[in-house]
């Protein structure tokens, strides 16, 4: 379950970086235009992977339900961070999935 949140979060960050107004909030340096074009497809790719993972882990019936729950929490976290601590969003987006993949705690939901 935690791994789903940890993967949904960077996907949402990528989606939000694809939008001009949020990119200015989060990043100080300018990003090449070509790279920006890749943000959105990458986000969807990551989201598809997370969906696949949740179905693989929890089955066809529980998987999608938990995915939506994880998305809700990830977007809530991101929205609050954008308003109050926008600068740590990129770091968190990189750290979270690593923590999820390294976690030795057996995945229970």
């Amino acid at each position: 379950m935690l791994i789903l949140i940890c993967l949904c979060f960077p996907a949402m960050v990528l989606l939000c970086l694809a939008m001009n107004k949020h990119r200015e909030q989060v990043l100080t340096q300018t990003v090449p235009k070509l790279m920006i074009r890749f943000f959105r497809p990458l986000a969807w790719l990551l989201l598809m992977f997370t969906a696949y993972l949740s179905i693989e882990l929890f089955g066809w019936s529980i998987g999608p339900a938990l995915l939506f729950g994880a998305l809700t929490i990830a977007v809530l976290l991101l929205t609050l961070l954008l308003t109050y601590r926008a600068k740590i969003v990129p770091q968190l987006a990189i750290v979270l999935p690593f923590m999820a993949s390294l976690s030795v705690v057996p995945i229970n939901f």
Binding site: M1, L2, S61, I62, A65, L66, G69, A70, T72, I73, L76, N108, F109
Partner: peptide
Amino acid sequence: NGFFSLHEGQFAGPIARWIYFFTGLI
């Protein structure tokens, strides 16, 4: 029955239950 179970979160373990709780609060 699927809708009932979704509504009540019968299948939810500890973390999923907390997420249910938070989305309920939302």
